[in-house]
């Protein structure tokens, strides 16, 4: 370590640094040595004192009026500085506004992108819906026009004598539909719900909405020896059928 310090002091780096002649890299090196080694720091302090003494010895009386000239310059600088400050403020405000505008456009862009995704999704959903509906219609057409289709008339029991429905079952295509053409009036808090027993399992086919569904064919899950039921349930439908409220059944 001592050797390292000696080598450093023997080089002229410290003198060069004193005069401000070192490169950035050298400056960092010298400053590190000064911070780390007291011997180097002492040498540096001594060099600075020597330089000051040496320069003072060679001091010359500065020309008359130089001080006033310098002070005039400094005052000009100060004014320039405050002008610069004003420009800096203006520039900052401009930058701030630009940042704001940029952010506004950015968020608007984000917003539009989100909306675009939403619309795209809706279109996709509609497409899927249409495909499903088209498929359904195609199936209905097949069932209704196929000579193998069995047509089953369904009538309500005592509880709903006015209930009339027709089931269409095609064992070849394994499709079945039902068309409920007439439903009796029910108290407001009750509704008709349709079920199917398929392979020993009860499937909820949903609530029959009175008017809308009159002309509609509702798909029934197909199975050999399946049974369809219509029950009266509390408004909104039930999770399991109320057996005592069965108003019609369709074996298909």
């Amino acid at each position: 370590m001592k050797e390292k310090i000696r080598l450093f002091l023997d080089s002229d780096l410290l003198e060069k640094y004193l005069l401000g002649d070192t490169s950035t890299e050298e400056t960092l090196q010298v400053e590190r040595y000064i911070a780390m080694y007291p011997e180097v720091r002492d040498s540096y302090i001594e060099l600075q004192e020597n330089l000051e003494s040496y320069a003072k010895i060679h001091a010359l009386k500065a020309p008359e009026g130089l001080k006033e000239q310098i002070l005039v310059k400094i005052r000009q600088e100060k004014r320039l500085g405050s002008k610069f400050f004003k420009y800096a403020i203006a520039a900052s405000i401009a930058a701030f506004i630009m940042t704001g505008t940029t952010y506004f456009f950015y968020s608007q862009n984000q917003d539009l992108q989100e909306k675009n995704t939403l619309v795209n999704n809706k279109i996709k959903d509609l497409e899927t819906d249409m495909k499903v509906q088209l498929e359904d219609l195609r199936n209905q057409y097949i069932v209704l026009n196929n000579p193998n289709t069995k047509r089953l008339s369904v009538k309500g029991n005592r509880k709903a004598e006015d209930l009339k429905a027709v089931a269409y079952v095609n064992p070849v295509k394994k499709l079945s539909y039902i068309n409920v053409s007439h439903l009796p009036q029910l108290p407001k808090d009750q509704c008709f719900q349709m079920w199917a027993e398929v392979n020993g399992e009860l499937v909820n086919l949903g609530v029959i909405k009175k008017f809308n569904d009159k002309e509609q064919l509702l798909a029934l899950p197909y199975a050999e020896k399946a049974i369809g039921y219509i029950t009266i349930e509390p408004k909104g439908g039930n999770e399991t059928p109320t057996v005592k409220n069965i108003v019609a059944n369709i074996a298909y």
């Binding site: 320069a55 001091a59 010359l60 001080k67 310098i70």
Partner: peptide, 10 residues
């Protein structure tokens, strides 16, 4: 200026 001008001028 008062303290260093002469030295710096030198």
């Amino acid at each position: 200026y008062d303290n260093y001008a002469d030295t710096l001028y030198g």
